[in-house]
Design a protein around this nucleic acid. Structure first.
Length: 112
DNA sequence: ACCGTGACGAGAT
DNA sequence: CATCTCGCCACGG
């Protein structure tokens, strides 16, 4: 079954909503989980539009290196980091500390 | 309809 | 190890 853009956006939102507090995931991981392995950019694009949707912890989604590449889209560049730190995620130089340990892979953690 | 752009990622140089 | 290039697909101009 082909994933329409509406479904894709919606699915991205759903997955992001499932990210546990204090954990983070990557655009690529979400994309891969949705079956669009090469659609990491689309996830980012979806997140860009996520501001229209409530309850979207976009701050828990970073790039594959754990870098807070999306911080400039939170109005305040420090907001993303603040939100993460408030959840116990340590940030060092715009990068998630111990990224691998708190990384949440929907394909593995969620498994469905 | 064509082109440039992007909250990405992986491989090449 | 630092940069560059290309693929990906949706969207705005």
């Amino acid at each position: 079954m082909k994933i329409n853009r509406e479904n894709f956006f919606d699915l991205v939102y759903q997955v992001v909503r499932l990210i546990p507090k204090g954990r983070v995931t990557s655009y690529g991981a979400v994309s891969n989980y949705l079956g669009v392995k090469t659609g990491a950019r689309m996830v980012g694009y979806a997140m860009n539009a996520s501001h229209t949707q409530p309850d979207i912890p976009a701050h828990r989604v970073v790039n594959r290196t754990g870098l807070l590449t999306g911080r400039h889209h939170f109005g305040n560049p420090n907001l993303m980091q603040n939100l993460l730190e408030a959840e116990g995620v340590r940030i060092k130089n715009n990068q998630v500390v111990d990224f691998q340990s708190i990384f949440w892979d929907p394909a593995k953690e969620l498994q469905f």
